[in-house]
Simulated scan of single mutants.
Amino acid sequence: MSAVDQPVEMRGGLGDWLRERASHAVSEFTAATALVVLFIVLSFASPHFLTADNLFNIGSQTAVIAIIAAAQTMVIITKGIDLSVGSVAALAGVVGAMVVRDLGFSVWAATAVAIAVGAVAGLVNGLLVTAARIPPFIATLGTMSAGRGLVFIITGAVGVYGLPKSFQILGNGQLLGIPFAVVLTAVVAVGMAFLLSQTRFGQYTYAMGSNLEAARRSGIPVGRHLAAVYVLAGMLVGLGGMIAASRVNSGQPNYGISLELDVIAAAVIGGASLFGGQGRIVGTIIGAFLIALVRNGAVLLDISIHYQQVIVGVIIWAAVYFDQYRRRRLESRG
């Protein structure tokens, strides 16, 4: 078996692999424990928390964060970052809403269009990072600004309204009593987990994040693969943007401002390392639920949105500090 064919975690030896697996488990257990504690606290703090309507709302809200955070996790594993997710989600949602209202597209056809919009944005990011060799932070920062500008240009900074009731199926519909957005999230989570853990695509992704030069020397087409990662991430962002538009039955040009903070926080809380090479979808989903509970609980307890931003910022600090601490422990044991 060649170095490329081996699972990335196994390349440093069985001991390193076991320590890495234990590290992931600790991160995910810590996040899950925090999630359970927060759920219990909110249950006592607000009489509205455990209502069916609120839990349905949490499920739909988490779906958007989780799907886009799954995209962000994949990018972070490659040692990249995508700051454009909020703008691209808004652009995809607005375009999806416009083709339904103005061109008579079905919600499913509009969803395909929204995913295509995300794919194009992802391709732009991928080409800027690989062909133009612009650092991911700067490349996606530019896309964030350009994307938001495009949203305002095509909408005239006015929301897209007048949509049929069927447009709400993605964000507010149910399948066998389960929010349809949650079903979509489960499908995306399972698919992404399989892709990253059981396929050559996933092995290449982890290998590039662990050591880009070693991956290149192993024969991995790093430029083409990295571009593919950004395209796939963009597609998921497009889907998330369409779900978000469906939830409010309109395309909102202001949607997604600061969304990148929530999805980065969800990924890092779940164990993804900003240093690359580490991260799992199961942890990201736990992180997404935690962020959604923080946002929902803040609204129920009438906490200002400005304080919500402070809370999310502190969570990011804590998660990154824990990641650094975890990495130092692994290095010292190695």
Score class of each variant (00 low, 15 high):
residue 320 V to K: 06
residue 194 F to R: 07
residue 14 L to E: 15
residue 263 V to A: 09
residue 27 S to F: 07
residue 143 T to I: 11
residue 6 Q to W: 02
residue 7 P to Q: 03
residue 304 S to M: 10
residue 284 T to W: 06
residue 244 A to G: 11
residue 28 E to P: 00
residue 69 A to D: 00
residue 182 V to I: 13
residue 108 W to H: 14
residue 97 A to Y: 04
residue 79 K to Q: 01
residue 12 G to F: 02
residue 27 S to L: 02
residue 17 W to R: 12
residue 327 R to E: 14
residue 315 I to D: 05
residue 24 H to N: 08
residue 53 D to Y: 10
residue 332 S to L: 12
residue 325 Y to I: 12
residue 322 F to A: 15
residue 294 V to T: 07
residue 13 G to Y: 05
residue 97 A to D: 06
residue 137 F to I: 09
residue 292 A to Y: 05
residue 35 L to N: 08
residue 56 F to P: 04
residue 203 Q to C: 10
residue 326 R to G: 12
residue 77 I to A: 00
residue 64 V to L: 05
residue 94 V to K: 03
residue 189 A to G: 14
residue 52 A to F: 11
residue 307 Y to M: 14
residue 121 A to V: 12
residue 76 I to A: 02
residue 117 V to T: 10
residue 199 T to N: 09
residue 187 V to I: 15
residue 37 V to Y: 06
residue 179 P to H: 12
residue 308 Q to P: 04
residue 34 A to T: 01
residue 136 P to V: 03
residue 208 M to A: 08
residue 6 Q to S: 08
residue 163 L to Y: 05
residue 245 A to D: 03
residue 105 F to N: 01
residue 321 Y to K: 04
residue 61 Q to K: 02
residue 92 A to H: 00
residue 79 K to A: 11
residue 329 R to E: 15
residue 139 A to R: 05
residue 55 L to D: 06
residue 42 L to Q: 03
residue 152 F to Q: 15
residue 302 D to W: 07
residue 248 V to N: 07
residue 148 R to C: 04
residue 295 R to H: 08
residue 289 F to K: 03
residue 136 P to I: 01
residue 288 A to Q: 10
residue 295 R to I: 11
residue 300 L to N: 11
residue 219 G to A: 15
residue 127 L to G: 10
residue 286 I to W: 05
residue 71 A to V: 02
residue 154 I to H: 04
residue 232 L to Y: 10
residue 32 A to T: 09
residue 264 I to P: 12
residue 53 D to K: 11
residue 171 G to T: 05
residue 41 V to Y: 06
residue 221 P to V: 12
residue 249 N to K: 04
residue 37 V to C: 08
residue 277 G to E: 03
residue 40 I to G: 07
residue 274 L to D: 03
residue 28 E to W: 02
residue 326 R to E: 12
residue 283 G to E: 09
residue 260 E to N: 13
residue 47 P to F: 05
residue 277 G to H: 02
residue 53 D to V: 03
residue 287 G to M: 11
residue 157 A to Y: 07
residue 103 L to S: 13
residue 147 G to A: 15
residue 276 G to T: 08
residue 322 F to Y: 14
residue 269 I to S: 05
residue 11 R to D: 00
residue 23 S to K: 04
residue 80 G to W: 02
residue 299 V to D: 08
residue 153 I to D: 04
residue 174 Q to Y: 14
residue 296 N to F: 10
residue 255 Y to G: 13
residue 156 G to Q: 06
residue 66 A to D: 01
residue 282 V to N: 14
residue 106 S to H: 09
residue 22 A to S: 09
residue 92 A to N: 03
residue 293 L to P: 04
residue 33 T to L: 13
residue 19 R to H: 04
residue 43 S to Y: 00
residue 68 I to H: 01
residue 8 V to M: 11
residue 64 V to E: 07
